[in-house]
Structure formats: C-alpha cells, structure tokens
Simulated assay, not measured.
Amino acid sequence: MTSRVTLISPALGPSMRQARFDDGRTSLDDDGAAQARTAAGTMRPAVRVVTSPSVRCRETATALGLSADDSPDELTGLRVGRWQGLTLDDVSRSEPEAVALWLGDPDSAPHGGESVRDLCLRIGQWLDTASRTDGHTIALVEPDVVRAVVVHVLGAPARAFWRADVPPLTATEITGRSERWNLRLGHPLQATRSR
C-alpha cells in the first residue's frame, strides 16, 4: 500500500502579508482568493481532502474547488500562546530575548504555547497514521505544518525547522509506505497543469 500526501500552503491573506501570528480566524484577502481560484483544477485527484482548522486553509480549499472531508486538530499550526494575533515585529520589540530563544531552541515555548519540537512530534504522529492510508490525500495546511513534515520526513533535527521556507499556494508532496516517506518540495500549483 502506497500513500501520497500533497500538502498545499494557504493563499495570501492579511496575516501572512503582515507577518502576524494567525489566530485561525483570519480570512484570505481578495488577491489571495483570486490566486487560489486561478489554481483550481490543477491538483491530481484525491481520495480525501483535509485542512488545518484555520479559516485561511478552509477558504483556500474552497477557492481551489476542493471540499474538505475533515479539519483535524492534529493539523493545527504551531500554537504560539500569548503571541497569537500579534506581528513578529511587535513581539520582537517587546520580547526580543524570548523571540531569540524561540528561534534558536526548538524545545522552548516562551509564548506559553507549544515548542517547535512538540509541533514536529504531533505532525510526525499524524504522518505515521497517514502512511497506513492507501491513496492520495490533499492537505491544505499552515506553512509551519509543512515545515514539520519536512523535518519528520528527512529525519532532520527540530532545529532545522526554521530553515525551510514555504511560499503561499505551493505543493509539497510525500509518498511512502510503512512510515517511510519520499519528499518532493514545494512547486507552484499552476505548474502542475503541464503534467
């Protein structure tokens, strides 16, 4: 049995444009939704579609013409506690040491939320379950979920989490069986039409 998971990052919205820690309730902006609609129909057919619980991931799925089967809590982005809703600039000004610690130590959670390592473990557990599911899954997920997938699939240290950039509306594909994955990194959704 072979599983294929295509992870799609959400379209642009105000939180991404402002480098704001999304609170899960922020919608896409008009440009982001239009870009997602342009990419509709470019994905390979899937047996199931899941999303992170955030509004922007669910709206991206809808704009892409996909109907999500589920929005499991396991696919929630990194929980940043009291920083939720603030911009990175705001937090860097008010808590520079905490930001430096958070970016440098994958076990730290100075915001009172979850550590990067905990996120990577949570996403790794979801992937282990997905590896026992036959067929193709499309997952519209937060960029930090994609980063955690890359760390897990490559067996990289959690410290590598911040070294992966995940542009909006890109697909990262993994295929595998028996909890062993192969990785194809973020290609623009529009590029899949030529396949």
Score class of each variant (00 low, 15 high):
V5H: 00
P10N: 11
P10S: 10
A11P: 06
A11E: 08
A11C: 12
P14I: 10
P14C: 07
R17H: 07
F21M: 05
R25L: 02
R25Q: 14
T26R: 01
T26F: 02
S27E: 08
S27Y: 05
L28G: 00
D30Y: 01
D30S: 14
D30E: 15
Q35Y: 06
A36E: 00
R37H: 04
R37Y: 07
A40I: 09
A40L: 08
A40T: 09
T42Y: 07
M43T: 14
M43P: 04
R44V: 07
R44N: 13
P45E: 14
P45W: 00
R48L: 04
V49F: 01
S52E: 02
P53C: 08
V55A: 14
R56K: 15
C57A: 15
R58C: 09
T60Q: 03
T62I: 13
A63R: 05
A63E: 11
L64G: 08
G65N: 08
L66T: 09
L66A: 13
S67P: 06
S67L: 13
S71M: 01
S71A: 15
D73S: 04
E74N: 01
L75C: 00
R82P: 04
W83S: 04
W83Y: 08
W83T: 06
W83P: 00
Q84F: 02
G85M: 03
L88N: 11
D89P: 02
D90W: 08
V91R: 02
V91G: 03
S92P: 03
R93E: 10
R93I: 13
P96W: 10
A100D: 14
L101E: 15
W102Y: 12
L103Q: 11
P106D: 14
P106F: 07
P110R: 09
P110E: 06
G113Q: 06
E114D: 11
R117F: 03
R117A: 13
R117M: 06
L119K: 01
L119R: 00
L119H: 06
C120D: 01
C120Y: 01
C120L: 02
C120F: 01
L121R: 03
R122Q: 03
I123Q: 05
G124Y: 01
G124A: 03
G124E: 00
Q125V: 11
D128V: 01
T129F: 01
A130L: 07
A130D: 08
R132F: 07
R132S: 13
T133N: 12
D134A: 12
D134M: 07
D134V: 12
G135V: 05
H136I: 11
T137D: 04
T137I: 00
I138A: 11
A139L: 05
A139V: 04
L140Q: 07
V141Q: 04
P143G: 05
D144F: 01
R147Q: 07
A148P: 05
V149R: 00
V149A: 07
V150H: 06
V151E: 03
H152N: 05
H152Y: 05
L154D: 12
A158F: 06
R159D: 09
R159I: 15
A160K: 06
A160W: 14
R163L: 12
R163D: 11
P168F: 04
P168H: 10
T170N: 13
T170W: 12
E173P: 00
I174M: 02
R177N: 10
R177G: 10
S178H: 15
E179W: 03
R180C: 12
W181L: 04
W181H: 03
N182A: 15
R184I: 13
L185S: 10
L189S: 10
Q190C: 09
A191Q: 14
A191P: 07
T192C: 11
S194E: 15
S194A: 14
